[in-house]
């Protein structure tokens, strides 16, 4: 089998919690607690979960924007976590990130043209004239007119700023883009425009996306495969169509049933989960979901279920549950 574009193996990111006047470490916040998956070139993995599940931290740890506590991240077979700063800088040409609020990542005093050109300047790609030409090309790719390059970020709407963020991420022709809630701050009539742009880039340029969102409908629209996270771990993974049609994990089922559907004629059975997501500082023993799970039994309180393929089930799907099955 050929090498996947991205291979994440046992990735952990823990944040020490300090207390007392000596600021001693009193505990660990396990934001990402042992995540493994593979992403092939040109494919999109949707990473979905509620706030605090660790999905954004996972995205940042993969790019080493935050140092992982343990585990490996292989990009095109090379271990990102073991790279020297110089090697990491070079590797970053191959992987870029776009954020929920591009406004926060754009310098307000630099024009949009300068912002898009910056990665080319940093990596010394082409002559200055070639870089300017490339900026025009990138603006065109994301559907912005050439004249906007002289404007400043505050003069743009949210949707346009997100296009600028995407143009900037595309400048280095990366193989992988981590997109962290890229449409969550946008109105629905604009969301579609940005999602279609992402889909087109993937089709035409073969860029792989790790697409992080809390929105199950958005995730379904862009993803080939989906990973559902709960308290720092993947609880279910599989091809998007199958995972949405026949979710096996009770958390995935509850999550899907909780999404309000814009269709008053269709009445569904809603699974309302009791309680709330526990703190990642004091994750429950056994299966972290057991206190809220309608299927929990004694085994679930004692032993943590590993992510595995089900015997007789789809070989490309995995679920971390002692009692998986349709709801």
């Amino acid at each position: 089998m050929n090498t996947p574009l991205l291979e994440v193996d046992g990735l952990k990111k823990h944040f020490p919690l300090r207390g007392g006047w000596l600021r001693r470490v009193t505990g660990q916040l396990r934001a990402v607690d042992g995540v493994s998956f593979r992403l092939q070139a040109g494919r999109t993995l949707g990473l979905v979960g509620e706030s605090g599940c660790g999905k954004s931290t996972l995205g940042r740890a993969i790019l080493r924007l935050q140092e992982p506590t343990a585990g490996r991240v292989l990009l095109e077979g090379r271990d990102i976590t073991a790279m020297t700063p110089a090697a990491l800088l070079a590797a970053r040409r191959r992987m870029q990130i776009i954020f929920q609020d591009p406004y926060a990542s754009l310098n307000p005093r630099r024009t949009v043209g300068q912002a898009i050109r910056e990665p080319l300047d940093v990596h010394r790609i082409g002559t200055p004239v070639e870089r300017d030409a490339r900026v025009l090309e990138l603006l065109d790719t994301v559907g912005l007119s050439a004249r906007v390059r002289h404007r400043y970020p505050h003069e743009f709407s949210g949707g346009q700023r997100q296009r600028v963020g995407i143009a900037r991420a595309l400048a280095l022709e990366p193989a992988l883009i981590v997109a962290d809630e890229p449409v969550s701050a946008l109105d629905v009539s604009v969301q579609g425009q940005v999602l279609n742009l992402v889909a087109r880039l993937q089709r035409e340029r073969g860029i792989a996306f790790l697409f992080i969102s809390h929105d199950l409908a958005v995730i379904q629209h862009v993803s080939d495969a989906v990973a559902v996270m709960y308290l720092g771990r993947i609880v279910e993974y599989g091809p998007a169509a199958l995972l949405y049609r026949e979710p096996q994990h009770p958390y995935t089922q509850a999550l899907l049933s909780a999404v309000p559907m814009p269709d008053p004629a269709r009445r569904r059975r809603r699974i309302v989960l009791p309680g709330e997501v526990p703190s990642p500082v004091a994750s429950p023993a056994g299966c972290a979901f057991h206190p809220r799970c309608p299927r929990a039994r004694a085994l679930c309180r004692q032993e943590r279920p590993e992510l595995r393929s089900l015997p007789g089930g789809d070989p490309g799907s995995q679920v971390a549950c002692h009692f998986p099955g349709p709801g």
Binding site: V188, G192, L256, D263
Partner: peptide, 18 residues
């Protein structure tokens, strides 16, 4: 607006209506 909202569908669309 009704067409543009991303919603969970039976089949994935190539392009969202906008």
């Amino acid at each position: 607006l009704l067409e543009a909202i991303p919603r969970i569908r039976e089949e994935r669309l190539a392009d969202l209506p906008v």
